[in-house]
Design a protein around this nucleic acid. Structure first.
Lengths: 139, 139
DNA sequence: GTGGATGCAAACTCTTTGCACCTTG
DNA sequence: CAAGGTGCAAAGAGTTTGCATCCAC
């Protein structure tokens, strides 16, 4: 049976408030404000549980680690800003992609990712350097 | 200056012969036939070098580790078979995706991945279980 | 001969797991 | 109070790197 712990509540809320797919690290940062001492392992365990329950969706962009978003928005795609690295939902779809595959291939679903500049970063009045990127590690 | 070692030659050839994007592990397996004792570190080092030189392309599908393919095929997308997990090139593109993003977003490029059954796996005469999957790990 | 390349093992990042303790229902 | 949840640290997978040795040019 499912329990409602402070930790789970804080994790759920952090994702709900973000309105965009978040990294586990970002979720930890947002949720540990409400629950000091929250561990990354707990974030991962809850993410898995919430995905299995269908409350969250895993968003995996090419070459990126998994992000998490609230489920229920229906079929959609994602846009990643190449300036701030943040990911946004795109509620549009080119559709009708079954014909693109070679002879004999059966297309069942598709993933589309758009790249470019988000509204903030393409606005000359608000340069990218003024905003905090969604991830900061540099290999 | 670039050198042509037996290792680099074997790695290059393994990828060229595959005609589809390969995992580092698959490249190692194919290349160590020609160069016994080849190490995975050498595969990774050469992959990086060859990508930097523009000879190879990194193919990163959502939620998958990087694969590598020969560069120069022009703009294309990929198809992953959900039965054998292998990845194939798709030389078609829906095009004209710039209009899908929200107001103020600038689309510069896109990635599209199709999922379904490859020609082999959708052919009832050749069941998937008869073919070797491209990756075998099961978390 | 010398600088790039290799093999090995250790280090690193991201994620999962074992275990003892704690907390919710 | 029992089952599920948590924190910590250790373990795993995939990838990178330090270092001594090797070998192409």
């Amino acid at each position: 049976m499912e329990r409602n712990t402070r930790q789970r509540t804080a994790i759920r809320q952090a994702i709900a408030e973000a309105a965009r797919p978040l990294l586990p690290q970002e979720i930890l940062q947002a949720a540990e404000v409400a629950v000091p001492g929250l561990s990354l392992a707990t974030v991962y365990r809850n993410l898995r549980t919430l995905v299995e329950e269908g409350e969250l969706l895993t968003v995996t962009l090419p070459g990126e680690v998994a992000r998490y978003e609230i489920a229920g928005a229906g079929h959609h795609h994602h846009f990643q800003c190449e300036s701030c690295q943040r990911v946004f939902e795109v509620h549009a779809c080119p559709g009708n992609l079954a014909g693109l595959a070679p002879q004999g291939f059966v297309v069942e679903r598709h993933e589309l990712t758009l790249y470019g500049r988000c509204a903030d970063c393409s606005d000359p009045k608000r340069p990218a350097s003024a905003r905090k990127p969604a991830r900061a590690h540099g290999h």
